[in-house]
Each structure stands twice: as C-alpha cells, then as structure tokens.
Design a protein around this nucleic acid. Structure first.
Length: 866
RNA sequence: GGGAGCAUAGCUCAGCUGGUUAGAGCGCUUGCUUUACACGCAAGAGGUCACAGGUUCGAGUCCUGUUGUUCCCACCA
C-alpha cells in the first residue's frame, strides 16, 4: 500500500499489468443470468489483415467510454469483440504469398487454399485483437467471434436461404463492376471515381451508302466491336430524320441501327451516343429498353476477345491506342479532344473498373429497403448527429440491387447447388450431398462466394447466436448503440438495418453514433500512400493509452473530423501526470492511516468541493447520455485541475500542515473525481484507486448526483475567498511586488468574518503579512474593489506607479462602457417590457455595482495623481 | 447536377433549447527551485464569432443570400 510512488507517472510500467488483472479477474465478462438491465455493443469487427490505426483507436475508445460508464452505472454490459474475414483483402495477401512461392490458387485448389487462409488468419488475425487490448478496451474476449467461425457460417447460410426462398435473391446475367486485378465483381459502392485526363475521340459512323456520316464522340474507342446501335435524343431535331436508318461501325463495318433514347444528352459531344451494352452501365439499360443484343468484347482480364479481329488478345488500353491509330489512318477520326472525365476504379486496388456482363447473384433491394427506411423515419433507430439519417435515407431511397457474389475463394461460398440430372437448383442451410428433388449425388456447388458485407450485415445478431433462439439474443438484442465512422454508413450500417428487420423482425441497434476521421496535423487523411499515418501503438508506448484516449476524445464532436496533434498528446500526458501527483500528495498525507469511506466532519472547503463535484457529476451524466464526450471530459478536466488542485488542495495543504484537516475526506473526494474519469482514462485511474482501495475501480459504481450534497452557501463563501486571493495576487503583479515580499493590507468589508475565518488561507496564498480592518492611515494606498469588500494595499509596496495608473485608466474605461451598455438596455422600454424578470434584475444589479466601482476607481486614480 | 459539413484568439477546436463582459488546450508575455507535480505554480496579453441582409427587446447561436473550404451521392458517352 505504501509503495513509493514515482514523481512522473510512467504508463508503460502499469498498463499491461492492469489490463491483465482485469481480464484475469473476469471484469469484462457479461453475466447472462444477472437481473441487471442489459447494455450491449457489438464491436465493429476489424479486418484480420489490418493493423490498428487511429480510426480503430477512436472508434473503440468511444465504445469503451460508453461500456465502462454503463458498467459503473450498474448495467449488465456486453461488449462483443470480433474480427472480419475481409474477403478481398485477405485473399489478395494469400495470393501474393502463393505467388512468392511460385504457386497460384488454381494450382493448389480451393480446399488447400482455404486451409492456407485459415492458417494465415490464425497466425496474423490475432494482431489486431492484441492491439485493441492495448487501448484498454473492456470487451468480453471470452465471447470473441469471427465472421467465418462455424456458427457464423450457419447464420450466413440461413440468411441467404431465407432471402432466396422469398425470391429476394436472384441470379442474373447482368452488367457488373469487374476488377481485372482482383478478378472479381464488386458492388457499386466499392467503386470510387477518380478524375482523369481522358480523350474524347470524334469518330465517323458512315451510312451504308457512304454518302455521309454521323459523328460520335467516345472515350472508349476500343469498345466499338461491342457497338449495337447509335442513340440520339428523341427531341433532338438534328437527328430526327435518321432514326430508324442504319450506319456502319468504323473499321468493323458492321451495320447497326440508329435509335432514340431519352437518356442521351443533346448537349454532350455531338449528341450521338454509341451503345455498347456489354461494357457500360447506361448502355446496358438502353439496350434492355430497346431490345438490343449485348456483345461482350473484353474479357475478365481486360483483354480484347476473338470478336475484335486483329485486336484479339490485346490489353484494353493498348488496344485503344492501336485502334485510334488505325482509325486515324483510315480518316475515320474527326478530332481528338482532351477532357476531364471521371473513371471508375476499384476502391481496393485502384484498377480501372471494366463493366462487363456475367452471371452474378443479386439481392432485390426495394422491398428490403422499405422497413429499413421506416425504422429511421419513425425514430426507432436514431443517428447521432441526426444529419446522418439524411445520408442514410437518401441512399436507401435510391438503392439499386446489390451484387453479392464474388469470384473469390476466401469467404462464404454461396450455399447453392446444381443438379445436372434433374436440372434443379437449390440452396441449403446445412451441408448437403444429394439433390433434394431427385436424390442424385452428382450435384455441383456454386463456385462463387459472398460479399464480405453480406456476412457483416448479420453481425449484431449472428454473434448472439441467431438463428437459434439463444438466451443472449433474448437478453442482449437489440443492441444499444453502434459506433462507427461516416464512411461505413452504406457499407454496413444500412445493411445491418435491413437484414436485421428482415430476419429478426427487430432493429439491430437503437442508436447509431457516427464519428469522423482522425486526420494528421495538417488536416490530411492519414493514408499508407502519403505515409502520414500515426501508429496508435507507437503513441501508446510513448505516452500511454490514457493520453491517447484523452487526445481522441477531448473536444470531440460527433460526426466531425479531428486533427491529431502532438501538442494535444503532450498536454493530456501532463493531465494524467497531474492526477498521478495529486494522488501522490494525498497518499503522502494520508500516511499510515487507513482510508475509510466514512465522511468525517466537513470543513467549508470540503463542503464546497463536494458540492462542486456533485454538480459536475450531474452535468457529466447528462452529457454522456447525449454522447457529448468532449464536453463531459472538459468539465471533469477543469473541475479537477482548476478547482480541486489549484484551490481545494492548496487550501488543504495549509490545514494538513496544521494537522487540522480530515485527510481522508480529501482522499475520498479525490476518488470521486477519479471515478468520473475512469471511463476515459481507465489505466491511471485504476492504478490510483488501487493505492487507496482494495476492490477494483472498474467494477465500482459511478457517482450519483445527490441533492443533499449541494451547498450553495459554501460555494459562495469559497468564491469570495478565491476572489480576494486572486485580486491581491493580481494587484501584487500590477505593482511589480517581488514574489518573495510579504505585504500588509487593510480591509473594509460588510463581511469581516470572512477574513477572520480564513485569515491563514488568505495570508499564505496571497503572501500577506498582516491584515487590519478599516482604512489605512497612510494616504498612499491603492485599493482593490470587490463587490463585498475594499482591500487597501500600502503604496510603500508600490514599484511601478505608471503601470498601475495605466491599468486603472483601462479599468475605468471598461466599467464606463459597461455602464453605458446596461443603461441603454434599461432605457429601452421594449426590453423592460418583454425580457424576463431575472434578466432585467441582473442588468440592474450590474449597473449599480458598476457605478459604485467606477466611483472607487476614480478616487483611486485621483490618489495616485496626488 | 443533387446533398451535407465547416468558417469563433497566432494554431487546434468547444460553445446544449437565443440572455448582460464568448471558453479550453497549445503557443506568447512577466514572475516563481512555494517540500504533489517545471509533464509544475502565479499573474497577464490576445477575438468587430467569414460577409451582407432579416426575425427578435436581445443573435456566435434562428432564417435568407454571398464568398471561401471540405466531404458525400450521381455521373457526360
């Protein structure tokens, strides 16, 4: 207990040990049988390929604050951690590793590939989980889940089959976004758009008789082999006469019709569009509307196929150059125009997307979206900040069908089989070995796997055991809050909502907390390519997890981005150290005495700080309920530093010396603040707690507001003492009095008792030698004017008269302008008629105080001028 | 093209339902080895709250517009 405490707090010395203590003692574990109110958070599962970054740190810190706070409020908290298999990212890693061994996934086969991937997961997937521990996250590791563990597989198959049986999942030969690098289809939201310097090539499409041509502008001449029509706007008078006639594709010389479609923009290019349904989304739709064939000319590797004549086998961009050359040679190019256009790229590897037609699985979204829209509209689910519900709503209302199949191996294989004998196609919830219809054992399985987000969509209920009716599901679902960044709303939040409503008939969470991005000191996004990322683990090893957490949460407003500054980190490290030293100081004064919860008789200082702690605890609770973390933290910060340390402990210090104070009171009050801080800075607070107490802080109760502790008269009295001390210190400074010199003062006051009661405090803290009541005999005295007292300082002490005069003149000006302001307000009849009484009377009070202060100031100045 | 955010002290940001003299941290100035802490203590300086209107007795806060800036969605072939 009485171990020697270092002057400087060293987090590295304690954090791991404390975390181990919590984990070993089951402090994070949820009790499924307790009668307490449940509080649940499903941790957004980080990718197994990932390393902890600032986004994780922020996300998990916010969750941990909520979890620890609610745990201390007596709830049965269940924070379920886990990891995501991250299909594309992981597969890319495995493939790269195979390549380094001279292998390919095809060479080793699906089964071996999966084995390798699981082995990889086992070896590296644990990294991120260890790193999250470093943050201090108090989640229930015993219930850790993985999106590809056995139980999760079942949930995913169940989800798929439920939708499939209802016709909400369908297979279609449709145009999809294809990444030729990742070799898979991806969904719309996995495509980013990048501005690029493209070229708009104006081509001649001759009429069959070669009498004339139409000019078509295109950025992708290599797709002319897939052209099936030219389209013009039906309202475009320039081309109305040509609708229905035919033209020849340049070079290819195939005849295609000219059709009309309102999609075509008259003002773009020449107003004539070449229609290539197999390689452009808009064209695909035009093709469907007009019953046009789709001719695929580029394969899944981005290579032109046999339909492209001599260009067969060329890469799409090489082919583009060649074709432009050839077209130019044949005088089929009218002009080449530089344009800035947006080109779709794969959000993972940034390869230019090739839209192409292939057999894929889709989720029909319209019917699923409706209840998900309603749940937010009618307030069952609310977003914090509220504005993000708009983002959500807009996306949901304009949602398109979701392509869920991926041509990857790492992931959940689509649970569909095909029977070659009876041509049946069916889906299965449990593993199957024969056709349900004809019992044939020749069945084959769908080779595709599911989008990672398809399985992630089930996270909050799958981890509680769905589709089984488990105790956990019953008790901890729907979860309370979901904490995530605004970049994840479409990918995950939206999909969890509609899938939960579909499968469990309940919302997955009640509240969605959206935070922003953690940016670097210049406001740039942290990224690998810029190399400006700050590693949370490095920060932790230098400053400790508590300082990191403070830095992420202090002054944070939900939904807004924050900058990560080294200077903030230092400041917060200092704060942690301050707490440490306060505990050192109190511990030293407590000495061998045992700390007892019982409150000994309260000094006025005790009553005051207790009242203040009580008030702040109420505000902090309110702030936390509203997720105003930054504000809550700032309030505790200021309570602790500006009031508890700077004033309360300074008062106590004097009493400790005289042995006239109850040290254990001070310790107990200090520990109340420590409690308030625990959700934010769990490590140092737990360490300090352990110096004074035996049971762990993490499982103790939060501070309750107690009306009886409110003590306005103590607060008023202390406020007065502080203003006396502060004003004397200020005057000393103004007068240039050396720090070591004690001064004498005279006091005129309506409340002499105040000065008598706190003589020692005033003398010590404002370096006063003697206090006499009444006016000083000497005329050479300057006066401090307070609301309740005048304090005279003998001019003997004065070092710099000019400085003092300047100050006085300044003060007079401010008071004068205040008087003017108050007077004009009170003269305004509308103000006196319409403003509430308390506002008016406070203005009146200010006015009268200012007036008397002005008088005093002027007489002060006059004296100086003598 | 549609939508959203931001604009407050030198810097980074708070400021809830409108209420007299707008806050914090860092930085800056001055002074302190005051036996918890120099990662500290004390005292200061520093802001026409982007601009222009409007509502109101009263606007950093509400409304409209302008400018600058960031982001999201859609996307022109």
């Amino acid at each position: 207990m009485c171990e020697k405490l270092d002057k400087i707090y060293d987090p590295c010395k304690f954090e791991d040990e404390i975390y181990k203590f919590w984990e070993d003692n089951g402090c994070f574990d949820a009790d499924f049988d307790s009668k307490k109110e449940a509080y649940t958070i499903a941790m957004p599962p980080p990718n197994i390929t990932g390393n902890l970054h600032m986004g994780h740190a922020l996300d998990n810190t916010i969750q941990d604050v909520l979890i620890r706070y609610n745990r201390m409020c007596g709830k049965e908290v269940f924070w379920i951690p886990g990891t995501d298999h991250a299909a594309m990212a992981t597969e890319a890693r495995i493939v790269a590793k195979l390549r380094s061994e001279g292998l390919t996934k095809e060479k080793i086969g699906r089964e071996k590939f999966m084995e390798r991937a699981f082995a990889w997961k086992k070896e590296y997937g644990g990294n991120i989980v260890r790193q999250i521990r470093k943050l201090g996250a108090s989640c229930d590791w015993k219930r850790e889940r993985f999106t590809m563990d056995d139980g999760y597989y079942r949930s995913v198959r169940d989800f798929f089959c439920t939708l499939y049986k209802e016709g909400l999942i369908y297979k279609g030969n449709r145009i999809v976004n294809w990444c030729i690098n990742c070799k898979t289809s991806i969904s719309d939201i996995e495509v980013d758009f990048k501005e690029s310097n493209g070229e708009l090539i104006h081509l001649k499409y001759y009429f069959p008789d070669r009498s004339a041509f139409l000019t078509v502008a295109t950025t992708r001449p290599e797709t002319i082999f897939g052209d099936v029509a030219l389209a013009v706007n039906p309202d475009d008078e320039r081309y109305a006469q040509y609708i229905g006639s035919k033209v020849l594709i340049p070079i290819v010389e195939r005849e295609i019709p000219i059709i009309s479609d309102s999609y075509v923009d008259k003002s773009f290019g020449t107003g004539v569009l070449k229609v290539t349904p197999a390689h452009d989304f808009a064209d695909f739709e035009i093709g469907e509307r007009n019953n046009l064939e789709a001719i695929s000319v580029i394969d899944t590797n981005g290579i032109l196929n046999e339909k492209c004549g001599k260009y067969n086998g060329l890469d799409r961009f090489e082919a583009r150059k060649k074709i432009i050359d050839d077209l130019t040679e044949n005088d089929l190019v009218i002009k080449r125009e530089k344009i800035n256009n947006n080109v779709g790229i794969c959000s993972r590897c940034e390869t230019v997307i090739e839209p192409l037609i292939s057999d894929q699985w889709f989720v029909k979204m319209k019917d699923l979206a409706k209840p998900a829209i309603d749940a937010v509209k009618n307030g069952k689910i609310s977003f914090y900040p509220e504005r993000f519900s708009k983002t959500y709503m807009h996306w949901m209302e304009n949602i398109k069908d979701w392509c869920i199949s991926r041509q990857l191996w790492w992931g959940h294989q689509i649970p569909v089989y095909y029977c070659p004998d009876c041509k049946n196609m069916g889906c299965f919830r449990e593993k199957i070995s024969k056709c349900e219809k004809c019992n044939s054992k020749n069945i084959g399985f769908d080779e595709n796997s599911l989008d990672t987000w398809f399985s992630a969509a089930l996270w909050p209920f799958a981890i509680l055991g769905w589709p089984d009716k488990t105790k956990q599901l019953d008790r901890f679902f729907p979860t309370d809050v979901l904490v995530t960044g605004y970049d994840i709303i479409f990918f995950w939040v939206a999909r969890m909502i509609f899938s939960s409503l579909k499968l469990t008939k309940e919302i997955p969470f009640k509240k969605v907390l959206i935070h922003g991005l953690v940016r670097d000191s210049k406001g740039r996004k942290m990224s690998k390519s810029l190399g400006n990322g700050i590693d949370p683990l490095e920060v932790i090893s230098e400053y400790g997890a508590d300082s990191l957490r403070l830095t992420l949460v202090m002054g944070l407003t939900l939904g807004n981005d924050t900058r990560f500054l080294e200077s903030k980190l230092e400041g917060n490290r200092n704060f942690v150290n301050k707490i440490w030293n306060a505990s050192r100081f109190l511990h030293m004064n407590l000495g061998e005495k045992k700390l007892d919860d019982k409150v000994e008789s309260l000094s006025i200082f005790d009553s005051w700080i207790l009242s203040r702690i009580n008030e702040v605890s109420k505000e902090v609770r309110e702030n936390l309920e509203r997720f105003e973390f930054g504000v809550a933290l700032q309030k505790i910060y200021s309570l602790f530093w500006d009031e508890f340390c700077d004033w309360y402990l300074e008062f106590c210090k004097i009493d400790f010396k005289n042995n006239s104070s109850a040290v254990s009171n001070s310790c107990n009050f200090f520990l109340r603040i420590v409690k308030m801080l625990h959700p934010f800075i769990p490590f140092v607070t737990e360490k300090i707690w352990s110096i004074f107490k035996n049971s762990p802080l993490i499982s103790s109760s939060y501070i309750d507001y107690d009306e009886k502790l409110e003590n306005k008269s103590a607060e008023y009295e202390i406020k007065k003492i502080i203003s006396v001390i502060h004003s004397i210190r200020n005057k000393r400074n103004e007068m240039g009095t050396p720090a070591s010199k004690l001064i004498n003062i005279f006091v005129e006051s309506e409340d002499h008792g105040l000065f008598e009661r706190h003589l020692d405090k005033i003398k010590t803290l404002s370096k006063v030698e003697g206090i006499k009541f009444g006016k000083p005999e000497s005329k050479k005295a300057t006066c401090i004017i307070l609301d309740f007292a005048k304090i005279y300082v003998d001019m003997e002490e004065l070092a710099d008269i000019e400085k003092l005069k300047d100050q006085l003149a300044k003060d007079i000006e401010t008071v004068k302008s205040n008087i003017k302001k108050s007077e004009s307000m009170l003269q305004n009849k509308e103000f006196t008629q319409k403003a509430p009484k308390d506002v008016i009377s406070s203005v009146e009070e200010t006015l009268s105080k200012s007036k008397s202060k002005l008088k005093d100031l002027i007489s002060n100045l006059d004296k100086l001028n003598l």
